[in-house]
Design a protein around this nucleic acid. Structure first.
Length: 659
DNA sequence: AAGTTCGGTTCACCCCATAC
DNA sequence: GTATGGGGTGAACCGAACTT
């Protein structure tokens, strides 16, 4: 075999390979020799076309590769998708890291190594044949582990426990002096707040599921940041900002969402926080708006490091140039006093979160009602709707009340006692709503623990929604390994069954010929309609004026918002109708008589188990022998073990662990 | 003739060690 | 905690051989 010239060899990134498959779909019948000459087809360094054999390799199973979707994450730009050497260990370590984050345990590199050692020992004891010879847990490995799993350093921040309350009166006085020149409607307060919008149980399962679909892309972080701006008079409750992690979240793309049409302002960065760049962007927009309106306002904000003054950006700041504030006076609160002096922290955000949680719980019930199955995780889009509705539900009274409670303005006297507990009442009502929904879902008459755990989380806290399975409160690496293994394997066939189930019930899509639209249908279609609206490319819609010729123009986001409002109203309306309850609970009753289609069924569970065994067996055989038989049809995406784990020894160990 | 598989070669990426 | 360089390795590449 003649030696090759290195200059002839090129490397394609995962994305390029994917694009090559897409190109093939446009010219499926073209001869590879011609295909290689297409302009869009990558060339070698010297400009010559790719080797036919290489093309053949890349295009093998191109249709299926397209179905898998464009590679995401760090893998996307790699030419060689080399798997990590210790996939098992890293998987469980990543799970432990998640649990540690939930429990708010700071994790240093040293702790990572310590936990890795524990997990390694545990896996060895469990018989996993992952060779750990020479595995030193070096700095290099630690770094790469973090990169691979998208872990990075974040500064902890939040309210500190002890606050010197003796200084509060002075600080109040000082703030009042600063705010005095401004009218009530010109005093604004803004603050951000973390929201784990979808803290669901079985997070370990989800991770495996994600890995299965996204092939190593792992970014199941569901925390987002909401940013609230209100004025003292309660007359200007501004559109809420939502800061996510993705530029264009998957669900946006799937539903062709135009972010401009959402009832919130969506921003993103890799931390999902309101970083300095966004802070400046907000100030610029806000200032511009006030300039046009010829208003001078005061903006009270906390002294978080990511909220610096525009005049003094951080040294390492490299974003767009900071704005010049002509119409906004920034007033910073003294450190560690926000829970006392910041109106938003005095109940507005708490009310918002309580409302969000109620809507979330109601959504769960609604989903179960419509589909008769355990609700899945909601995506960020759904969360955004809930957020918008929750923010909408905060009344001007609540806002005024909280400003009064913060008591940083002299103009408003403190005796707002008649309204003092308005916020508490609101929160209490939301809690009752959550409890009612949760009781319905779990069929347990009383379980205050669920509610408490759901409401206990603080600013960036995490609520635990599940009652059936205990959440990992203290990260226990050994327990995680045990549970993770079990959950990972058993999760897959359940999904399979769900899919089968879903297909058989797909007729629901074609509604029965009912004379009048039912409430459920109305709720369904108001949701659909808002989905349609938000997908429009245009941000405004105009329609003929009823009188004469003119045209009315309406921003689409307003339409979306009202459609969401209608949707929420219908949901609330349904709650008032007791008749649904009986229907609902019927879903939850154990299947005593075989009328219609049983949803939870011992036999089906048995079938599920059998399915696992079959699937596992087939997979091992597939690995050891050939891929021809099952490999073509529905295979591909259904792997329950992440594909990177598909090695003989590991699977053997996996099998042993399963027993 | 066109596409696929085989097998040698290359180099991207892994882990470790060290320096900053 | 991060950046860089070295050694090692195996996934990707590509020409030749083989199959359809």
């Amino acid at each position: 075999m003649p030696p090759m010239k290195s200059s002839k060899k090129i490397g394609l990134t995962a994305i390029q390979k994917y694009e090559l498959c897409c190109l093939r779909s446009r010219y499926p019948k073209m001869k590879l020799a011609e295909f290689a000459l297409l302009d869009e087809c990558p060339r070698r360094a010297d400009g010559s076309p790719l080797a036919i054999s290489s093309l053949s390799d890349h295009l093998k199973g191109w249709a299926a590769k397209i179905k898998e979707g464009c590679p995401q994450g760090p893998v996307a730009l790699k030419q060689k998708n080399r798997i990590e050497s210790y996939p098992f260990l890293e998987h469980f370590l990543a799970l432990w890291m998640d649990a540690a984050e939930d429990a708010r345990i700071p994790v240093t590199d040293e702790i990572i190594r310590t936990q890795a050692k524990i997990i390694q020992t545990r896996l060895e004891n469990a018989g996993v044949e992952e060779p750990y010879d020479g595995f030193e847990m070096s700095n290099g490995w630690t770094q790469h582990f973090k990169n691979r799993h998208n872990f990075g350093r974040l500064r902890t921040h939040g309210q500190s426990g002890e606050v010197d309350q003796s200084a509060l009166p002075e600080q109040r006085e000082s703030l009042a002096q600063e705010l005095m020149p401004f009218a009530s409607c010109d005093r604004y307060n803004c603050d951000e707040s973390g929201l784990v919008f979808n803290k669901q149980p079985q997070s370990s399962n989800v991770r495996l599921q994600k890995g299965k679909q996204l092939r190593g892309g792992k970014d199941p972080k569901t925390r987002i940041t909401t940013f609230h701006i209100v004025n003292e008079a309660g007359t200007d409750k501004r559109k809420i900002w939502v800061v996510g992690r993705a530029k264009r979240p998957q669900c946006f793309r799937q539903q062709r969402v135009n972010p401009d049409n959402l009832p919130i302002i969506y921003k993103f960065n890799n931390k999902a926080w309101l970083l300095t760049g966004l802070w400046y962007e907000f100030l610029r927009r806000f200032n511009e708006e006030m300039r046009i309106a010829q208003r001078q306002i005061a903006l009270v904000t906390d002294n978080c490091p990511t909220h610096p003054r525009p005049e003094s950006p951080p040294i390492e700041y490299s974003g767009p140039t900071p704005p010049v504030l002509t119409n906004i006076k920034l007033i910073y609160l003294p450190p560690c006093t926000t829970s006392f002096l910041q109106p938003l922290d005095c109940g507005i955000i708490a009310s918002f979160k309580a409302s969000y949680k109620r809507l979330y719980a109601e959504y769960m019930v609604q989903h179960f009602n419509l589909h008769g199955e355990r609700p899945p995780k909601i995506d960020i889009l759904q969360a955004i709707y809930l957020i918008a509705s929750a923010w909408d539900s905060i009344s001007p009274e609540t806002i005024r009340n909280c400003w009064a409670k913060a008591n940083i303005t002299t103009s408003m006297a403190s005796p707002a006692n008649s309204n003092e507990n308005l916020t508490d009442q609101f929160i209490s009502a939301q809690r009752q709503g959550v409890l009612a929904a949760w009781t319905t879902l779990h069929q347990s008459s009383q379980n205050p623990d669920i509610l408490n755990s759901y409401f206990d989380d603080a600013d960036e806290g995490v609520g635990t929604l599940d009652s059936g399975e205990e959440a990992v409160l203290v990260p226990d690496a050994i327990a995680i390994v045990e549970r993770g293994i079990k959950a990972g394997v058993l999760d897959c066939p359940a999904n399979q069954l769900d899919k089968i189930d879903y297909d058989s019930e797909n007729d629901e899509q074609q509604p029965l010929p009912i004379p009048l639209i039912g409430l459920e249908t109305a709720i369904h279609y108001t949701g659909e309609l808002s989905r349609f609206l938000q997908a429009l490319e245009t941000t405004t819609l105009s329609f003929p004026n009823t009188f004469g010729k003119g045209k009315n123009t309406t921003p689409v986001d307003q339409l979306v918002s009202s459609m969401q409002g209608l949707n929420s109203a219908l949901i609330i309306y349904r709650r008032t109708r007791s008749t649904r309850q009986t229907t609902l609970t019927q879903f939850f009753k154990p299947n005593t008589h075989n009328s219609g289609e049983p949803r939870i069924d011992e036999q089906r569970v048995q079938e599920g188990r059998a399915f696992v065994d079959l699937e596992m067996e087939r997979r091992y055989n597939w690995i050891s022998s050939e891929e021809d038989d099952g490999g073509e049809g529905e295979d591909g995406n259904t792997t329950c073990v992440p594909t990177k784990w598909v090695t003989g020894s590991i699977n053997t160990a996996y099998e042993q662990l399963l027993r």
